[in-house]
Design a protein around this nucleic acid. Structure first.
Lengths: 155, 155
DNA sequence: TTATTAAAAGACCTTTTTATCTTTTAATAG
DNA sequence: CTATTAAAAGATAAAAAGGTCTTTTAATAA
């Protein structure tokens, strides 16, 4: 449904929305470590997101990635479109080429409302609104294992 | 969410449920053409489904694939389990490693009910019941383009 | 009992996705 | 103006998914 690349891109962009600003740019490395994704891979994705005007970057000392005011108005679906294209997420759950309400696959009428629901969420909120909601509701934004668990003593 | 392999396997098994019987076995080639999937690939999947006791086969003249009475009691989730394993379909929509209701990803509470719904459908109906429902409700079971469209005259 | 048929087995190939590494470019702090 | 920093670019590699082909095995009809 979503490629790993899109998932990384979404999580990282939302992370930028929460933690970066024009004055406080963040390096790939820092983000990759926070989200727990391979940083060279994320670097590639970020290049593409910059080209797609989803995020912004500057080089050099204190450079890094951040969201401009325009970037903040984008939504999550823009990220998906930029990385996976829209076809992938819109395609039939069972893989049928011609699946619609007049010619439905066996699970069409279960999948359709779900898709509308989740795509609505990805389309109707700006990145900034989405990020705020995530902060407010305390949603998880990392691939890391967060369980406190037993800390193996290091020595 | 589902690999292409799983999708092919589900469609083909449901096709067997509808069109085959112990007396009327069907060859890979015939099924592959009906569903419109690559037949050597489907052959591999069928070998695995036979090993997993989801479908049955016999070699030789008038041999082919069919569903035994026991096979007919399996469900779609058994197919998915056999091909993809259960982890894949149960994994978090955003790819988080630790996503559950106490530590939810940003779309957890949208995805969860959908998953319960669709997994329920895949678990609670036997293959045979599922196939009947599909016939009764007139659901599509092929990757083929079915649009009547304009038939390009061949000569 | 033999020829034929169709699945089983397994080697192999291709494409896509994911991930890494090295070099170049540009920004800026000093 | 130079050293340093961090992204951009691009080449490359590794893994997974998808797909093909050839040989072997087993069933059965004649």
């Amino acid at each position: 449904m979503l490629s790993r690349a899109s998932k990384y891109a979404i999580l990282s962009t939302l992370f930028l929305a929460q933690h970066s600003s024009e004055e406080r740019k963040i390096s790939v490395k820092e983000i990759a470590e926070s989200i727990d994704v391979p940083s060279p891979f994320l670097a590639k994705l970020f290049q593409q997101l910059v080209r797609g005007k989803i995020i912004s970057s500057t080089k050099g000392p204190h450079g890094g990635f951040y969201l401009s005011e325009k970037n903040k108005m984008k939504n999550v679906l823009d990220i998906i479109e930029n990385i996976d294209g829209l076809n992938k997420i819109n395609s039939c759950f069972m893989g049928l080429n011609e699946c619609d309400s007049t010619n439905p696959c066996p699970v069409h009428f279960i999948v359709e409302p779900f898709k509308n629901n989740i795509l609505g969420k990805f389309r109707d909120k700006t990145i900034m609104e989405f990020a705020k909601e995530i902060s407010d509701k305390g949603r998880l934004l990392t691939l890391k294992d967060i369980s406190p668990s037993f800390e193996e003593p290091h020595e």
